[in-house]
Amino acid sequence: MDQVNVNQPLDYKKKNNLKKAPSIWRDAFHRFLKNKYAILGLVILTFMFLFSFVGPYFSPYLDAKIDVSKGNQPPSAEHWLGTDNLGRDVLLRLMLAGRISLTIGIAATLIIVLIGGMLGSIAGYYGGWLDVIIMRLADIIYAMPGLPILIMLGAIMSDLKIPPPQRIYYVMFILGFISWVGLARLIRSQILSLKEQEFMLATEVLGLRDSKKIIKHLFPNVLPTVIVSATLGVAGAILSESALSFLGLGVIPPTPSWGYMLSAANNMIDFAKRPWLWIPPGVAIMLTVVAINFIGDALRDAFDPRQKI
C-alpha cells in the first residue's frame, strides 16, 4: 500500500501557482463549455429560473379567484397541470413556488458551503485550540434538537413582529446555520490528511501565506466533497423549507413553494388519484437538483487540468 500511496502530483500544483490567475479561469471556462452535461445543466437551470420568474406573467390565472367547484380537476387544455382542491391552477402555483424554492435552495446552500467550508478548513488546517473550539461548537450545534429550536424561533419572530413576508430571508440563514456542521466535519478530516502531503510541504518551502495555502491548494482538493454536499444540500433545503413554513418560519400561505406543494399531497388518495398534485413539484425539484449536479460535476472537472475532455 505504502509505495503506491504517492500523493498529489507536485508538478500540477506548482503549475497552478506559477500561471497567472486569468488563464486558469480561461482554461477552466473553455473546458466547462466543452462539457455537454454542463451545457445541459445550464440550460435546465436557466429554464427553471425563467419558468418561475417570468412564466407567471403568461398565465391567464394570475388574477383568478378561488373556485372550489373547479377543485381537483385533472390536467386539461384549460389547466395544463390540473387544479388543486381550491380550484387553483397547478401550473401557475408551480411557477410561483419556484421563485421561493429556487431562492431558498440556492441561497441556503451557498451559506452552508461558505460557513462549513471556511470553519472546516480553519479547524483542519490550524488545529490546536481553534480546532477544539470550532469542533466542540459543531458538536453542540449538531446535537441541538432541530424542531424545538425552530418552534422557538418561529415564536420569537412572531413576538418581534417581523413581518411574515420577510421571514424567508431569515429562513435561509437558519437553514444554513444549522446545516454547516456535517460539511465542516468532512472538510476538516480531509484537510487533516491533505496537509501532511508532499505538495503542502512544498508550499511551506515556498513560504506561501496561510490564506493562499488554504484557498488555492487545500480547498480545490476538497471541492468534490463540497460539490456533492452542495447539490444534495439544494434538494434538502428545498424540501425542508416546507417543514419550516409550517412553523411560521418559511413562506406564508397562500404563497406556495415546491416543498409545500409536495407535502400538501401526503395521503394515499391524493397520491393514487391525483398525481398532478405531486408529480409537477417533484419533477421541478429533481430537474433543479440534477442541473446543479451537472454544473457542479463539470465545474470540478473544469478546474482539474488532468481531465481530458
Partner: peptide, 22 residues
C-alpha cells in the same frame, strides 16, 4: 444512476413508503 438518485432524493420519503405499501 445519477437520475435515479436524484428522483429518489427529490421525493419525500412518505411517497416511496406509500408506493411500497400499496
Amino acid at each position: 444512476a445519477t437520475l435515479l438518485v436524484f428522483i429518489l432524493y427529490s421525493l419525500p420519503s412518505f411517497f416511496l413508503g406509500l408506493v411500497m405499501l400499496k
